Computed example of a mutant assay.
Amino acid sequence: MANLINPQTALYFRRVGIITIFAIYMLILVGGIVRASGAGMGCPDWPTCFGQWIPPTDESQLPANYHQIYADSGYKDTQFNAFKTWTEYVNRLCGVAIGLLIFMTAYASRAYHKTDKTVFYLSMAAFFLVGFQGWLGSTVVASNLRPVIITLHMLLAWFLVSLLIYTVLRSQRTFIPTINVNVLPGQFKTVLIVAMAMTLLQVAMGTQVRQAVDVLANSQVGIDRAFWRESFPIIFYVHRSFSSLILFTNSWLVWKLYRAYRGRVVFLHRMSLALISCIVIAILVGVSLDRLGMPAVAQPLHLLMANLIFGAQFSLFVYLRYAVQNMQNNSMATQ
């Protein structure tokens, strides 16, 4: 039944899905900027911002007693800062844009309702998940930026983008070229799964480091960020050293893919280049965080690279899975 999907319809769904995926990555970057800049409470209410749908640009545009108004709501010491307010507001606008794109993806998935119901249902699940993510975003504000809620918010975005990657690749599985996966080492799939697990572990450790940085930011106000490193927990040094193992493992995967296909399989070639490039960038950014005094601008980029690394790994895993299925189906058809 999946073979009946119109190629043009599949192409349209793929384009919308890819745009949505990259938009979510952009939202993750913006969210990282919000957290690194301390702009999470730039809008102390939700869904409005300082009681307005379009936030003010100057404190004079707010009621004279706005400090007391928000103190009565549980947000004491609320101080208007135009940069932080508009940074958070842009983050919310990006969230709205993601909602519209997810809706377009879910609407486009109707074409798969008869040919591949899984694509349709996963697209609808992503749509409702974005709604839950929006609610969770309001909870982040209501909780006054509790670290556990912020982390959950980030992990849900991670899960959402992985769900969309799988959905888009599944929608295109009948168009994935039949390639001989037997030319890859027998342990390739296992190593790829281990590499994905390593990335998740590295992100978990990075989250712990991130929380430690948040604590330092609050407890060492006025102290140069370059001195924060002296107070880092041991997990920071484990996280830093673990990156070498990640680089080695993924380099092996990329090398084996190149040896097997010599760049002839465009998707595998591009994902391999994206994977190794993101790892190198992530390590370089990590070095800047370690050696250049924890520059705030590097933190969101470091988080984005981690998300892109897992996205590239997961894309390779799903693509090769369907390539194996297509090879097996063609083998059965010729018998």
Rank of each mutant, 00 (worst) to 15 (best):
A2K: 07
N3S: 12
L4H: 11
I5W: 00
I5V: 15
Q8E: 15
Q8F: 14
A10G: 05
Y12I: 13
I18F: 13
T20M: 05
L29I: 03
V30F: 08
S37L: 12
S37F: 07
G38L: 08
G42M: 06
P44Y: 05
W46R: 05
W46G: 03
Q61V: 00
Q68R: 08
Q68I: 00
I69P: 03
Y70W: 03
S73W: 13
Y75L: 12
A82F: 14
K84I: 04
T85F: 04
Y89A: 10
V90M: 12
N91T: 08
F103G: 03
A111L: 05
K117D: 06
F120N: 04
A126F: 01
W135Y: 11
L136P: 00
L136I: 05
T139L: 15
V140G: 02
A142Y: 07
M154C: 02
V161S: 10
L164N: 06
T174H: 14
T174K: 14
T174R: 14
F175R: 15
P177W: 04
N182L: 15
L184N: 08
G186M: 09
Q187P: 00
T199M: 15
A204K: 03
A204C: 08
G206E: 02
R210T: 12
Q220F: 14
Q220S: 13
R225S: 12
A226H: 13
F232C: 03
F232T: 01
P233V: 08
I234T: 11
F242R: 01
L245Y: 10
L247Y: 09
F248R: 02
S251C: 09
Y258F: 15
R264K: 15
L268G: 03
H269G: 01
M271W: 12
I276K: 04
I279K: 04
I279Y: 02
I283V: 12
L284P: 00
A296H: 06
V297Q: 10
V297P: 00
P300T: 07
H302K: 01
L303T: 11
M305I: 02
M305V: 00
A306N: 10
N307A: 07
A312N: 06
Y319N: 02
A323G: 05
V324Q: 13
A333W: 01
